[in-house]
Every structure is written in structure tokens, then in C-alpha cells.
């Protein structure tokens, strides 16, 4: 069906109920109504439907009045991330060291990714990760991926394959304003302590 198939009456009625009809439109509609008086009934019905649909839409979208844009303070808190590499990994010989940072520019937690797009909403996990790595490299954040570490393996549910649980790690870098170390005071209470000077090579993280 082509769009030119819309009747002149439909077009004129639509213009009238949209408040866009000019004098010539009204003259033409009157001419149509002289031949068929039911034109006025159809105009009234169309206008009633416009009002009813408007009411239904307004009811649905009324919730918009409740939604505020996130404030700057909400967004500023978002980039804070605790990274519990050592405690979580159990690789640290010393007490668990946890770092937190505030990000200046690009870095973890401050994504420069565009909003979800038609393509990337349906990406597989592998594709999404590949895109993440690509973007991370572009931001000069990504350094390398470490070899996977197997945590456990057991027979899969189908009884033939093996299900493997493994650790996948990336080495990344970020520019930080402040670096904090989770430590304990003399009473053994945990607390964040600002690290006043760089702590050395990355190997100390492990």
C-alpha cells in the first residue's frame, strides 16, 4: 500500500484535529460534507479519538515527571571503585591491600562508551569483551591480559565435557588523584589510609 492512497477526507480531518487546517482545507472539507453529511460525524469521532489517545498517552508518560536527571554529585561518586585484587585472590603474602582511587580523565568506572546501540545491545559476551578491550586500548588503559588460571574443573552436566572454572585477568593502568590503602590501625580496626607516595612496581600488588 502506498501513502498516496490516503483519502482526501482522511487528510483533511487529520489536519483539522491537529489544528493545522487552513482556510482552503476547511473549504474542501465543507465541500465533501455537502455531498456526504456523515463527514462531520467522522470528524467528531476522529477528534474524540485524538483526545482519548492523548489522555491514554498522558497517563502512561505521567511517570516522566518523577524522573530527574542524575545530579553531578551522583555521577561523581560513581567512579569510585574498590579493587580488591589481593584480598580476593589470596595471592598477597602480607595483609590484604585494597586500593581505591578517584579518577581524573579516563579510567575504570568512567566509561567513555557510547550509549547502548542497536548493534551492541545484542553482542555476545566475547564480542562485548573484545570491544571493551579495544576501547580500553584506545584509552591507553589496557596493558595486557594475563594467562587464564584454572580454579577448578569437573564433569559437565552432560557427562561428557568438562566444566572449567577459571580466572581471567587484565592488567590496566589509570591516572588517579588519590590512592588509598585499606589497612588496620593499632587496635586492629580496618580503615582507608592515603598512600602518600607511589608504592613501587605493580608486582607489589600481588
Amino acid at each position: 500500500m502506498t501513502e498516496s492512497m490516503e483519502s482526501q477526507e482522511d487528510i483533511l480531518i487529520s489536519r483539522v484535529i491537529d489544528g493545522r487546517a487552513g482556510a482552503e482545507d476547511l473549504r474542501q472539507l465543507s465541500a465533501l460534507a455537502q455531498a456526504d453529511g456523515a463527514v462531520w460525524d467522522r470528524l467528531a469521532a476522529a477528534d474524540a479519538d485524538r483526545a482519548a489517545l492523548a489522555l491514554a498517552v498522558e497517563r502512561e508518560i505521567a511517570v516522566a515527571e518523577l524522573i530527574e536527571a542524575p545530579g553531578a554529585d551522583e555521577l561523581e561518586h560513581e567512579p569510585y571503585r574498590f579493587v580488591g585484587w589481593t584480598g580476593w585472590m589470596g595471592w598477597a603474602a602480607a595483609a590484604a591491600v585494597v586500593f581505591a582511587w578517584t579518577i581524573t580523565g579516563s579510567g575504570p568506572g568512567r566509561s567513555n562508551f557510547p550509549p547502548p546501540t542497536v548493534q551492541n545491545v545484542s553482542l555476545s559476551a566475547d564480542d562485548a569483551l573484545a570491544r571493551y578491550i579495544e576501547a580500553s586500548k584506545a584509552e591507553d588503559r589496557f596493558i595486557r591480559e594475563l594467562p587464564k588460571v584454572m580454579i577448578e574443573s569437573h564433569l559437565a552436566a552432560d557427562g561428557r565435557a568438562t566444566e572449567v572454572t577459571y580466572l581471567r585477568q587484565f592488567v590496566e593502568k589509570a591516572t588517579v588523584d588519590n590512592l588509598y590503602e585499606l589497612s588496620t590501625d593499632e587496635h586492629g580496626r580496618p580503615g582507608a589510609v592515603r598512600v602518600s607516595s607511589p608504592i613501587g612496581s605493580s608486582s607489589q600488588l600481588y
Binding site: 489517545l53 491514554a56 498517552v57 498522558e58
Partner: peptide, 25 residues
């Protein structure tokens, strides 16, 4: 009537559904 119109509008192809709903705002 609005409920029925909305239901019918939501069954339209997107090219028609979206302008109709937007115009109702």
C-alpha cells in the same frame, strides 16, 4: 476508548506507531 486506541497504536508498525504516540503528547 483510549485504552483500546493505545493498544491498537502499539500494534502498528514502528514507522506509524511512533509519530502517532508522539503527537498525542
Amino acid at each position: 476508548r483510549g485504552r483500546r486506541l493505545m493498544e491498537a497504536a502499539q500494534g502498528l508498525p514502528p514507522a506509524y506507531r511512533e509519530p502517532l504516540i508522539l503527537r498525542a503528547v
